[in-house]
Every structure is written in structure tokens, then in C-alpha cells.
Amino acid sequence: MSKNTCIEFKNVSKNYKELLALDDISFKIPKGEIFGYIGPNGAGKTTTIKILVGLIRNFKGDVLVYGRNISNDWKNLHNLIGFHPQEAGFQEWRTVDHVFKTFGRLSGLTSEQLEQRTQEILELINLSDVRYKKIVHLSGGMFQKLRLGQALLHEPQILVLDEPLSGLDPNMRFQFKKIIKKLRKSEITILFSSHILSDVQDVADKIGILNKGKILTIGSPEELQNSFHIGNIIEIIVAENTPLCENLEDLSNIEYVENVKSSKQLIHLKSDADIDLSITSIFELLIQQKCKIRTFNLVKPSLEEVYLKYVGGKTE
């Protein structure tokens, strides 16, 4: 294990009776990295997370945090981890302040530390105005922030987020991601699980794709885009007052061009296409056809397409 490794899963498997939830998964997360952990519902993300936070103890393999095995050293490691669960609720009679007091004390904070951290966290998650409000009166977004707040209360070095953006409106998602980006500066290591790739792609340093209990691939967003070749697309946008091309079907005769969608102004190239040669040929033909070209882009496959290819979904 390198000195920089914060979390390491080594050959971890977990069964629920006959259902194999995790099948021999191994991965490492370096210190200070945001690791996007994505996969469809039922892929095994929550099981992985529950093992890491100590909610599941009976599993095969080893999980190390800073080189220490969580199965043997959980009493000393739990304080390093903050957990934002996917569904966990709070008892309805509690106020926001009371939630912080209870979980802060259970995490071992003193009264002074608790007061200071409560103020800091409430400010960070923008809930200072509702500190003494009962949690039943909070909106869904506030509730989600409260889950994040309790996870950060004891200044953990590792933050585990299980579907933190599910059910949030676009504004709240933006705010939440903003908080995560702020946390990045404090060098906290974040495991961010989601079944929606767009949730993690603009915050994650690395992304791991999980399906049916197996890790299919791990890499940075760029590496994932480059590693999975799903064909190149050329996008042409012409001036509005001119038709794209009078004889667009002529483009299909160019070597490597697979199909042309005039309505979307997209040209799909064959997977073995010589891109430079294809682009030159296409350009020449378009100029010959007197097309007024506004933009001409080589579109790479999106991460969403890469993800869907991995987990067996279909792209449009």
C-alpha cells in the first residue's frame, strides 16, 4: 500500500444469502481524491459503502483505511469517516441543533468543540437560520444538507456520500456540488456514490464504474472517455438561413463515413476511420456544396455514453 493511499478494498466479496452483492472487488483511493463511484441501482454501491462505514461486518476480503484493517481496528478508525447515507432519517422530535448535539457527542466532541463545529457546519451548509427548527419542518433539500452536516461534524478525513443528490432540484444540486468543491480544498478524501454519472463527473478526480457487484473500470473522466472507443461523431452547424447541404447524401460516399443524420447535422464515422482524412474530405465536399458552415466539431463520446456502454444500456 502506498503512503498516499487512503482507502483500499482488497478482494472484497459480500453475499446476501444467494445473492452475490460484491464479487471480489479491489480498488484504491489516494488521499485527498474525490472518487466517483457509479453504477445502476442494485450494482453493489451501497453494500461497498456500508462495509467501509462499519455497518456491514461480515464480508470476505480486506478493507484498509490508511493501511489499517477496519475489521480489526474499527474503534480507532470510525472517527476518521463521515457518512452521508442514502436514506437515513432522524427522529421527528429533534431540532437541527439537537441532531448536531447528539451525533457530535456520540462522536466524542467536547461541548466547546461541538458549539464551534456546529456553527461552522451550519454556515457551510447554509442552515444557520433553521438551527432551532424541528426537522419535520425542513424541506427535502435542507434535510439532505443536514445529513451532510452530521457527517462533517467531527472533522472526518474521509467523507462517504451515498447518493447525496438524489431527489434534489437543480438549484439544490448546484449548491450541494458547490459544498463538495469547497471541501476538496480541505484535502478530505471523498467517496461519492451515484447512479447518475452527471452527478459525479464534474467533481470527481476518478470514477469507478460498478455493475452486478464487479468493478468494470476505474479512471479519470478523460481516461474513461479515451479508453472506450464508441465511434467518432462530427457535428456541423450551418448558418440558419441556408440549408445544410443540397446533396447531403453525397457525404455517405466518403470513405469512413458510416451514416449521416441531416436533422441533427451529425455525421458518424466508422470506428476505424482516419479522422484527419475524413474531416478533410467532408470539409471539401461541404464547401463544394456551398454550405455556410458556422461550427465544425469532432465530438468525442460523452461520459454518459461510456457509462451506458459499460453497464449494458443503450445510447441514442
Binding site: 455497518l55 474503534k75 457518512f83 447515507p85 436514506e87 437515513a88 432519517g89 432522524f90 456520540l106 452530521q150
Partner: peptide
């Protein structure tokens, strides 16, 4: 109700 709403998870990740 607390079991169904996963209330105990937040306690059990702490030394409780």
C-alpha cells in the same frame, strides 16, 4: 418506524 426510516444507521456508524 425508525428501522424503516434507517434512523439507526447514523448511530451505528459511531461507537454506539
Amino acid at each position: 418506524s425508525e428501522k424503516n426510516r434507517h434512523v439507526y444507521e447514523l448511530f451505528l456508524i459511531r461507537p454506539v
